[in-house]
Design a protein around this nucleic acid. Structure first.
Length: 265
DNA sequence: ATGGCTGGTAGAACCAGA
């Protein structure tokens, strides 16, 4: 008998502040697995009970005070796997899990990289590039069927931003970042599921700034959130969804959830 | 061309986001 598994990813920008919309998403969409980034909570204060109540009894957490933080919540069996610190600075930006269906799941929150795309003056930009380079070294050693998801903080394609030329000098879409991400992609022949299902030149965004008066009207978005699959996992991808409505829900995150459904044996 | 907003934590004329 053939079965399916749905896996979602969402930069939630504080899981405690957005409990209402997380609950709504789980009730209305009900992915089997939810990967969160920017949970902004230490593990002992993570709202584990709310997820448990909704059936997400398997939980792996990697939080820290104030910033960053990632989590995987699942209603199908999984066990915790490695957590990598690719900057070696203690920041909680990655957590992995082994799903019982055989897929290895890696949930990552790549550093934003600060304001200026200039390695000379902006150490955060240097850190972001180093983070991606270390991920590339890790990825080139991977030989398992893996799904890599999260907020990569890079919009690689020209149609991943509202205005390619205008954003060439804006951190998230600079050529040096796009090239670093391309090396990461090549290191495992990762399949970009977002673009497998919605090929260029269609514009695809997963993030819209809070600063616009009307995010939808101005539509100055970027595709920062991604799901990359090992080739063998990509072959099993059945559907891919972007939940743009969530950007309009009460107290929204500036990112929307994305989700892919896979065939499993 | 600029600035616009958000949450956590401390109690900021902050930090980080992107």
């Amino acid at each position: 008998m053939s079965q399916k598994i749905s896996i979602a990813s969402w930069n939630i920008n504080s899981v405690r502040f957005r409990l209402d919309i997380v609950e709504r998403f789980l009730q209305e969409v009900g992915p089997d697995v939810l990967c969160l980034q920017e949970t902004k909570v230490v593990d002992r204060d993570f709202p584990a009970q709310m997820f448990r109540k909704l059936g997400y009894q398997y939980q792996v957490l990697n939080g820290q005070p104030m910033h960053h933080g990632v989590a995987i919540l699942s209603r199908v069996p999984m066990v915790a796997d490695n957590r990598h610190d690719w900057q070696d600075n203690g920041e909680a930006r990655h957590i992995g899990a082994q799903l019982e269906c055989g897929i290895r799941l890696e949930n990552v929150y790549v550093p934003a990289g600060g304001e200026a795309p200039d390695p000379e003056t902006n150490p955060k930009f240097v850190q972001k590039l180093a983070f991606i380079e270390r991920m590339t070294n890790w990825s080139s050693q991977l030989d398992e069927p893996t799904l890599l998801v999260g907020d990569f903080n890079v919009a690689p394609c020209e149609t991943d931003v509202w205005n390619h030329k205008q954003l060439l000098g804006v951190v998230s879409h600079t050529p040096v970042e796009v090239e670093a991400l391309a090396r990461l992609q090549q290191s495992h022949n990762w399949v970009d599921l977002g673009r497998k299902f919605i090929p260029e030149p269609a514009h695809v965004f997963t993030w819209w700034s809070y600063r616009a008066k009307d995010w939808k009207a101005s539509n100055r978005g970027r595709r920062l959130d991604h799901m990359w699959a090992s080739p063998s996992v990509a072959e099993r991808a059945l559907e891919h969804h972007l939940f743009e409505d969530c950007r309009n829900w009460g107290k929204p995150s500036d990112h929307i959830p994305i989700m892919t459904t896979f065939k499993v044996d």
